[in-house]
Structure formats: structure tokens, C-alpha cells
């Protein structure tokens, strides 16, 4: 297996010939990465996940998983992959254990793996309950338990924390981080909870209208975040400061009675402050408005 666990080359797909959901997507997911996949509703996240799992047959371009074409190696690839697509697919007339047992038997796994995943997802006590009596969060956990059964090398999760309470979200986040760090499991997940993704992922892909508008590591995104940050300054005379600094810092502006200047580096902020103080201005507040993932996402997807 090469560097990429998931690799698509010029992947193009449409539900009809006239309308393409994606056009020439080149997705790259590194081995042992936690890849967060974001995009507004209708961007095609779930469609892409369904394509990666071979659930949608007709497409052009190439999908490679574990370095092998999906079409020709579907069963081999699926034996190493655990997934949760949209809401969990569960037999509601059966117990949680029966649901796990079905997957276990089809995958040819040992029965003790059922207890292992029940414990991992905190469902041991509810294992004998019928699934139709489960809460949404419990169903989500069971869906995740099913995905974890084969100790997969690759986990593909579509909205894995949907319906979970805050404690559940933290537990699942820790579980995914543990799987990634301990076993080197590559995790590809989509989520609407951007603050959650931010705490979890090592790599990010942003999809907008079928186009991958950003793909890279969290460090690369940090660089964008810094680049897009603004320093806000409040003094006893903001207009006076504006006149003082305009020549050296042409990007400075006065917005809502605050001085705004794009973030450069720490030294620049120090120089600015020193200049104002030496000119006799009193500084009340110096604040950096860092763009979090949500802001970056909003900015990228709204353009």
C-alpha cells in the first residue's frame, strides 16, 4: 500500500447525465490520518462516501482504496473497511447483539469481537435490548460498533456523532483518537459539527458544489487561519492612531470605531503598540480575532 489509503483520480459523478454532483475530484487521504470532510448540505459529501464504498456504481474517473482499484477489489477492500453511512442501518426487530452477530457472521469474525465493540461503545448493558427501544444516540453507537467489528484499517463515517449527547460526543471523539493513535486506523469522516472536527482531524477536505475547494493538513489550514486573522485595537483616540499608522500600515482601517489590521506576526503587533504608546496614545484593548474552522468554512464555502 502506498501513501494514500483513499485516492480518487478525476472522479466525476452525476445522478443523471446532465447534472454532475462532482467534477474531477482528486481526493487524497493519507495512511493513519483523520480526514475531516466538510461541505454545506447538498455539496455531495454523502454521495462521495457512497461512491467510496461502491454503493453507487456509475462514475467516471478512478477510485483507489489501499492502493487498489475499488471496482476490481471491492470485497477485499470492504473486508478491511468499517463504515457508517448516514443514519445507522440496523434491524430494529433484533437486539443490539443480534445486529452485531449478523455482521460478525458475514465477515467471518470471532464472537468475542462483539463484546469488545460493545464495551468500546458503552453498549454492553443494552446489548440484549431490541433496537427499536434504543434512543437515537444508542443507535448511532451501535452503528459505530458494527463499523468497528472487523478492527478496520479504514473507517468511513458519515456524521458519526449525530444524535449523541455532549458526553457521547466526547467519548466517541476519544475513541476515534484512540483507534487512530493505537492502531493506526485511518479515519475518513464527515460532520456538520465543525468545532468537533477541529478537535479531531489531522487533515481536512472542503467540498463546495461538487468541487474540492480545500484539501490539506490541519497545519496548512492553521496557516490560512492566521493569514485570515485580524488584530483589533481600541485606544483613547482611534482616529488619531489611524492617521499615525496609515503610512506604515496601509491596510489599517477603522471598523465600528475599532482599528482593524490584518494579522502578520507577533513582531508587527509589538511594533504597532510601541508606536502608539510612544506617540502618547493610551491602549485599552488589543485583540486578535482568530478565524476558527467554522469561520474559514463559511468564508470558503460562501465565495
Amino acid at each position: 500500500m502506498g501513501k494514500w489509503v483513499i485516492e480518487t483520480n478525476n472522479l466525476t459523478f452525476g445522478y443523471s447525465k446532465r447534472t454532475a454532483v462532482f467534477d474531477k475530484i482528486n481526493l487524497r487521504v493519507e495512511t493513519a490520518a483523520i480526514y475531516g470532510f466538510m461541505g454545506p448540505n447538498g455539496a455531495g459529501k454523502t454521495t462521495l462516501i457512497r461512491l467510496l464504498l461502491g454503493l453507487l456504481p456509475h462514475h467516471t474517473g478512478e477510485i483507489m482504496l489501499f492502493g487498489k482499484p475499488l471496482k476490481a477489489n471491492r470485497l477485499e477492500i470492504l473486508s478491511k473497511t468499517g463504515c457508517l453511512v448516514e443514519q445507522p442501518s440496523l434491524y430494529e426487530n433484533l437486539t443490539g447483539r443480534d445486529n452485531l452477530n449478523i455482521t460478525c457472521m458475514i465477515r467471518g469474525l470471532q464472537k468475542d469481537s462483539i463484546d469488545r465493540v460493545l464495551q468500546m461503545t458503552g453498549l454492553t448493558d443494552a446489548a440484549s435490548k431490541r433496537v427499536d427501544a434504543y434512543s437515537l444516540g444508542m443507535k448511532q453507537r451501535l452503528g459505530l460498533a458494527i463499523a468497528l467489528l472487523p478492527q478496520p484499517e479504514l473507517l468511513i463515517l458519515d456524521e458519526p456523532v449525530n444524535g449523541l449527547d455532549p458526553l457521547g460526543i466526547v467519548e466517541i471523539r476519544e475513541l476515534l483518537i484512540h483507534l487512530n493513535r493505537e492502531y493506526g486506523t485511518t479515519i475518513f469522516l464527515s460532520s456538520h459539527l465543525l468545532s468537533e472536527l477541529e478537535k479531531l482531524v489531522t487533515h481536512i477536505g472542503i467540498l463546495r458544489k461538487g468541487e474540492l475547494i480545500f484539501q490539506g493538513s490541519a497545519a496548512e489550514l492553521d496557516a490560512i487561519q492566521q493569514h485570515q486573522s485580524t488584530v483589533m485595537i481600541d485606544t483613547d483616540n482611534n482616529h488619531g492612531c489611524l492617521q499615525l499608522l496609515k503610512q506604515d500600515y496601509p491596510a489599517i482601517s477603522l471598523v465600528a470605531d475599532r482599528l482593524h489590521i490584518p494579522y502578520g506576526d507577533k513582531e508587527t503587533i509589538g511594533d504597532l503598540c510601541q508606536k502608539m504608546v510612544l506617540a502618547g496614545f493610551r491602549l485599552y484593548e488589543v485583540k486578535t480575532d482568530h478565524h476558527d474552522l467554522e469561520n474559514i468554512f463559511m468564508k470558503l464555502t460562501s465565495n
Binding site: 461502491g54 430494529e92 465477515r107
Partner: peptide, 11 residues
Amino acid sequence: NNTWKHIFTLP
């Protein structure tokens, strides 16, 4: 139960 998609993601 919407389980066809689960079956089709099994080996």
C-alpha cells in the same frame, strides 16, 4: 430498516 446499504458495504 434501510439495511441494504449496510449489506452492500460488507465483504
